Lab assay of single mutants.
Amino acid sequence: QVALSRTQVCGILREELFQGDAFHQSDTHIFIIMGASGDLAKKKIYPTIWWLFRDGLLPENTFIVGYARSRLTVADIRKQSEPFFKATPEEKLKLEDFFARNSYVAGQYDDAASYQRLNSHMNALHLGSQANRLFYLALPPTVYEAVTKNIHESCMSQIGWNRIIVEKPFGRDLQSSDRLSNHISSLFREDQIYRIDHYLGKEMVQNLMVLRFANRIFGPIWNRDNIACVILTFKEPFGTEGRGGYFDEFGIIRDVMQNHLLQMLCLVAMEKPASTNSDDVRDEKVKVLKCISEVQANNVVLGQYVGNPDGEGEATKGYLDDPTVPRGSTTATFAAVVLYVENERWDGVPFILRCGKALNERKAEVRLQFHDVAGDIFHQQCKRNELVIRVQPNEAVYTKMMTKKPGMFFNPEESELDLTYGNRYKNVKLPDAYERLILDVFCGSQMHFVRSDELREAWRIFTPLLHQIELEKPKPIPYIYGSRGPTEADELMKRVGFQYEGTYKWVNPHKL
């Protein structure tokens, strides 16, 4: 086992960053958080920038500027975001240094004079007029057009580079997404736009490419001749908990499936790229999406959770019991969808996408189930092999396979070949997804960000279904809070070829 401390991990990262040409360590950078008073800024962006600063992973002359409508001070920003920093008493001095680099400007999102004030403020910072500028839009999409237009007109660096990070949702359907994309691309070049999907920053999602293309053993079996089906799962054990009003506007397909799960599907299904260059990788992902037809209604199961009468606390409440959810809402909190990649490698292999709230566990994984062994000599005792990439929690890679049961006879039983990170790298604290992705933006690497043509294809696949749901308002199937979801989803999976045995229990190697 390799035991690495946080300091050692960050030392390795620093070495990698400083050796590259793309990370300008000594240049002045300004990180501007648009929507600095909001939840995302408070819980994710400010803490992430602090962790990067604490670990010495930001360029040395980096300033952080918050911008929002609320009249706040840096002290206010500190008060609301610091509880999420997880700072230790030993880091007190470092924390003071961090907040000394912070400033805040209040202004409207659609007022040109406010942006001119913001620009004057940035120019007044040390070497601010020639600094590289990175704008993070932690804002609702309704203000994107006004904000990007004003940034472009008043706040661009004339000497350094300018980059803009856009948070999902990128529209509600193909038409609104196209409108937003066309607007942003009329102001910024594609190499300046970073559409963030934080799932692409997760260690195991990034590991998929290495697993596939750096190991000879997987190449020959990664196709329709050997793989019976692919299941991509995202499960949350909690409901909307008072935030249903926002969720109800989008629903589970827009929230998770059309982005996170579809991105994971691309990494499983794509061909080997010409290189690890950002556009070479994204070219292959677009090719996969172009091979997927629009979702067919007979390959869809929609569910909505109801309270568990035997549960406790939140578990007793259904989705419609959330006071922020519109009365009688038919918005799905669970969806199972089957897609097919219609190309030579994957023809006929079902890709089953499942996601839901208020389920029995927290889990995100990719599961490849292989065909049955031909010419069975073990009297149907063999179960199908599976390769599982567990994204969260407890990152893991393992192969479910058959071995001989101890004893006199040739009785096979299920076991696993474990390729888990935790076994080799004991207690290594890896940077989280937002840390990686923000560092990628500083480096100018777009590999783990969504390109406009990729986004367009993703919406093309799901828009007809979303429009049909909005028009017909089908009643989702009720499922109990804390269950596996509607049984109809299991029946759909069985119908397209997935075999669920229920006889195997994964042993978490992190707890051995």
Score class of each variant (00 low, 15 high):
residue 264 M to V: 08
residue 330 T to P: 11
residue 431 P to W: 05
residue 430 L to P: 14
residue 253 I to L: 11
residue 424 R to F: 04
residue 369 Q to C: 06
residue 369 Q to W: 01
residue 265 L to K: 02
residue 457 E to P: 01
residue 280 D to N: 09
residue 485 G to F: 04
residue 436 R to K: 13
residue 320 L to F: 09
residue 409 F to Y: 14
residue 425 Y to E: 05
residue 375 G to N: 13
residue 302 L to K: 04
residue 331 T to C: 09
residue 288 V to K: 03
residue 326 P to N: 06
residue 416 E to C: 06
residue 420 T to H: 10
residue 346 W to I: 02
residue 302 L to Q: 10
residue 501 E to H: 13
residue 327 R to W: 11
residue 304 Q to W: 01
residue 489 A to D: 03
residue 388 V to W: 03
residue 391 V to K: 04
residue 365 E to Y: 05
residue 422 G to I: 13
residue 484 R to P: 04
residue 425 Y to N: 07
residue 371 H to V: 08
residue 364 A to R: 02
residue 401 M to K: 01
residue 295 V to Y: 10
residue 315 A to K: 12
residue 483 S to H: 07
residue 506 W to H: 05
residue 319 Y to M: 00
residue 500 Y to A: 06
residue 382 C to G: 12
residue 475 K to R: 15
residue 373 V to I: 08
residue 337 V to M: 09
residue 267 L to Y: 01
residue 427 N to R: 06
residue 389 I to M: 09
residue 312 E to P: 09
residue 492 L to M: 15
residue 417 L to R: 03
residue 421 Y to I: 11
residue 399 T to W: 11
residue 450 V to K: 03
residue 476 P to L: 06
residue 257 M to S: 09
residue 332 A to Q: 08
residue 442 F to G: 02
residue 390 R to K: 10
residue 337 V to A: 12
residue 426 K to H: 08
residue 253 I to W: 01
residue 381 Q to I: 10
residue 364 A to Y: 00
residue 440 D to T: 04
residue 450 V to H: 03
residue 307 G to Q: 12
residue 306 V to C: 13
residue 367 R to E: 04
residue 329 S to T: 12
residue 292 I to V: 12
residue 363 K to P: 03
residue 424 R to G: 03
residue 263 Q to D: 01
residue 362 R to Q: 15
residue 347 D to V: 07
residue 494 K to W: 11
residue 380 Q to N: 14
residue 385 N to Q: 06
residue 481 Y to A: 10
residue 466 L to E: 04
residue 452 S to C: 09
residue 346 W to T: 01
residue 380 Q to R: 12
residue 468 Q to M: 11
residue 422 G to P: 09
residue 259 N to H: 01
residue 422 G to T: 15
residue 372 D to H: 09
residue 495 R to S: 12
residue 469 I to L: 13
residue 490 D to T: 10
residue 348 G to A: 05
residue 345 R to Y: 08
residue 473 K to Y: 11
residue 364 A to C: 13
residue 393 P to C: 07
residue 435 E to T: 10
residue 345 R to N: 11
residue 370 F to M: 09
residue 287 K to Q: 09
residue 265 L to V: 09
residue 397 V to Y: 06
residue 368 L to R: 04
residue 383 K to F: 09
residue 475 K to E: 15
residue 379 H to A: 15
residue 283 D to H: 04
residue 300 V to Y: 12
residue 341 V to H: 02
residue 439 L to H: 12
residue 374 A to E: 14
residue 340 Y to P: 00
residue 491 E to K: 14
residue 397 V to R: 04
residue 280 D to S: 11
residue 439 L to D: 02
residue 288 V to F: 08
residue 353 L to K: 01
residue 472 E to I: 09
residue 267 L to D: 00
residue 440 D to C: 00
residue 304 Q to G: 00
residue 351 F to V: 04
residue 496 V to H: 13
residue 305 Y to R: 02
residue 278 S to D: 06
residue 311 G to T: 10
residue 488 E to F: 07
residue 267 L to Q: 08
residue 492 L to W: 10
residue 418 D to I: 01
residue 292 I to A: 09
residue 304 Q to F: 04
residue 323 P to C: 12
residue 401 M to R: 05
residue 474 P to F: 10
residue 378 F to I: 07
residue 437 L to A: 01
residue 302 L to D: 02
residue 501 E to D: 15
residue 445 S to T: 11
residue 390 R to H: 12
residue 338 V to K: 13
residue 456 R to K: 14
residue 422 G to D: 15
residue 259 N to T: 04
residue 381 Q to K: 10
residue 482 G to E: 05
residue 341 V to N: 02
residue 417 L to T: 07
residue 264 M to H: 02
residue 288 V to D: 04
residue 393 P to R: 05
residue 312 E to Q: 12
residue 475 K to H: 15
residue 486 P to V: 07
residue 275 S to N: 08
residue 265 L to S: 05
residue 378 F to R: 03
residue 503 T to P: 07
residue 421 Y to T: 03
residue 364 A to M: 13
residue 275 S to P: 05
residue 427 N to M: 11
residue 412 P to L: 09
residue 357 K to E: 03
residue 497 G to S: 11
residue 308 N to I: 08
residue 483 S to C: 10
residue 261 L to V: 11
residue 500 Y to G: 02
residue 350 P to H: 04
residue 420 T to G: 07
residue 288 V to T: 11
residue 310 D to M: 12
residue 395 E to K: 07
residue 445 S to H: 11
residue 456 R to G: 12
residue 276 T to K: 12
residue 435 E to Y: 04
residue 504 Y to V: 05
residue 289 L to K: 01
residue 421 Y to M: 09
residue 302 L to Y: 10
residue 257 M to E: 05
residue 328 G to C: 15
residue 323 P to A: 15
residue 489 A to E: 06
residue 270 M to R: 00
residue 403 T to D: 03
residue 417 L to F: 01
residue 404 K to L: 05
residue 437 L to P: 03
residue 424 R to V: 05
residue 344 E to A: 10
residue 490 D to L: 12
residue 416 E to A: 05
residue 369 Q to I: 06
residue 322 D to L: 04
residue 467 H to E: 08
residue 474 P to V: 13
residue 392 Q to L: 01
residue 359 L to W: 04
residue 294 E to C: 14
residue 335 A to Y: 03
residue 500 Y to D: 03
residue 332 A to W: 01
residue 372 D to K: 06
residue 285 K to S: 03
residue 270 M to S: 07
residue 279 D to P: 08
residue 469 I to T: 13
residue 393 P to M: 04
residue 503 T to V: 11
residue 480 I to T: 15
residue 399 T to N: 07
residue 486 P to G: 04
residue 416 E to H: 06
residue 465 L to N: 02
residue 298 N to C: 13
residue 340 Y to Q: 13
residue 347 D to I: 07
residue 322 D to K: 00
residue 401 M to W: 10
residue 275 S to E: 05
residue 432 D to C: 10
residue 477 I to Y: 14
residue 498 F to V: 12
residue 497 G to Q: 07
residue 262 L to F: 10
residue 441 V to K: 05
residue 463 T to F: 04
residue 335 A to H: 00
residue 324 T to W: 07
residue 301 V to Q: 07
residue 372 D to F: 01
residue 368 L to E: 01
residue 496 V to L: 10
residue 316 T to G: 11
residue 366 V to Y: 03
residue 324 T to H: 07
residue 326 P to W: 06
residue 429 K to F: 09
residue 327 R to F: 12
residue 375 G to I: 06
residue 394 N to F: 09
residue 268 V to R: 02
residue 273 P to C: 04
residue 381 Q to H: 10
residue 321 D to F: 06
residue 289 L to P: 04
residue 313 G to Q: 10
residue 269 A to Q: 00
residue 485 G to M: 01
residue 504 Y to D: 04
residue 323 P to D: 13
residue 486 P to H: 03
residue 433 A to D: 02
residue 309 P to I: 12
residue 308 N to K: 14
residue 323 P to L: 14
residue 376 D to V: 05
residue 264 M to D: 02
residue 504 Y to K: 06
residue 293 S to R: 15
residue 354 R to L: 00
residue 302 L to S: 08
residue 265 L to E: 02
residue 291 C to F: 09
residue 363 K to T: 06
residue 309 P to R: 10
residue 314 E to Q: 10
residue 441 V to H: 03
residue 363 K to R: 10
residue 419 L to Q: 09
residue 472 E to P: 06
residue 262 L to C: 08
residue 322 D to I: 05
residue 290 K to E: 14
residue 470 E to W: 08
residue 460 R to I: 05
residue 423 N to C: 09
residue 348 G to S: 09
residue 391 V to S: 03
residue 494 K to T: 13
residue 463 T to A: 06
residue 352 I to P: 00
residue 307 G to K: 14
residue 384 R to G: 06
residue 282 R to I: 04
residue 321 D to I: 04
residue 416 E to I: 00
residue 479 Y to W: 03
residue 395 E to A: 11
residue 313 G to M: 12
residue 300 V to A: 14
residue 369 Q to E: 02
residue 437 L to C: 09
residue 470 E to H: 11
residue 268 V to D: 01
residue 446 Q to Y: 05
residue 296 Q to M: 13
residue 399 T to F: 08
residue 502 G to A: 10
residue 479 Y to P: 01
residue 483 S to R: 07
residue 407 G to D: 11
residue 312 E to G: 14
